[in-house]
């Protein structure tokens, strides 16, 4: 915004960069993510506060254990999707629409793989261990915490797919790299939430038998 003014250049209310050099849409995404910290913070606080308070089985560590090798793979899938996402952003900033499309699709694919893994995990717990959302307080807090994370991943996949569709309709260009960057911020946030959940829920779960 350091261009020389031209009489025909109208001032608009969307005059970004005016005060702080920050872009409105990017700023609002960060404020939103700050708010999301409190959302997942409250869910995690609920899960952690109710830990070990189930009055009836099954509870991990006693009746069954988390399948750590399996969850490690799905956590890694989500981590790699973040790499794909950042490569999509790098591609659109270069003006490489084809590369953007490929990396966005890769991100979506990895995201869906993660969701598939979550679906598999949930059904295994439900069928093999008899753990429903209403079975005990562990089931309630586990399904709600990981389920809301899964819902966030789903929204992210839909968002990225919308960008892919836009790119096929020729509406995504180097000048709209911000659209991809902001979707990326959301996607990475969903990833870091899982980094925390992976440790707090899975790796720090009581475990003794089973291995």
């Amino acid at each position: 915004m350091t261009t020389t003014a031209h009489p025909a250049q109208h001032a608009t209310v969307f005059d970004d960069h005016r005060r702080t050099g920050l872009i409105n849409r990017k700023t609002v995404m960060w404020v939103f993510l700050g708010s999301e910290c409190m959302f997942f913070g409250s869910l995690i606080a609920t899960y952690m506060s109710l830990r070990g308070r189930s009055l009836n089985p099954p509870y991990p560590g006693a009746e069954f254990s988390f399948d750590i090798p399996f969850t490690t793979v799905s956590a890694t899938v989500l981590l790699i999707s973040s790499l794909a996402m950042v490569l999509a952003v790098a591609a659109i900033q270069r003006g490489d629409i084809r590369g953007t499309r490929i990396w966005l699709l890769a991100t979506c694919g990895l995201g869906m793989l993660f969701l598939g893994g979550q679906f598999y995990e949930f059904t295994t717990f439900f069928v093999a261990e008899g753990l429903g959302i209403d079975t005990n307080i562990f089931g309630s807090s586990f399904y709600v915490l990981t389920g809301f994370h899964g819902a966030h991943v789903t929204v992210g996949v839909l968002w990225l797919l919308s960008l892919v569709i836009l790119s096929f309709r020729g509406k995504l260009s180097q000048s709209s790299s911000l659209d991809v960057e902001i979707a990326g911020l959301y996607w990475h946030f969903v990833d870091i939430v899982w980094i925390v959940i992976f440790v707090l829920v899975y790796l720090l779960a009581p475990h003794g038998g089973g291995h």
């Binding site: 702080t20 960060w30 404020v31 993510l33 700050g34 910290c37 913070g41 606080a45």
Partner: peptide, 23 residues
């Protein structure tokens, strides 16, 4: 910019304090 970092880390710290206090 540093402002972006502040927008995110401030809420993050409050969330962490709340998690630890509730636990």
């Amino acid at each position: 910019g540093r402002l972006m970092t502040a927008l995110f880390t401030g809420p993050l710290l409050i969330a962490a304090v709340i998690i630890l206090t509730l636990m």
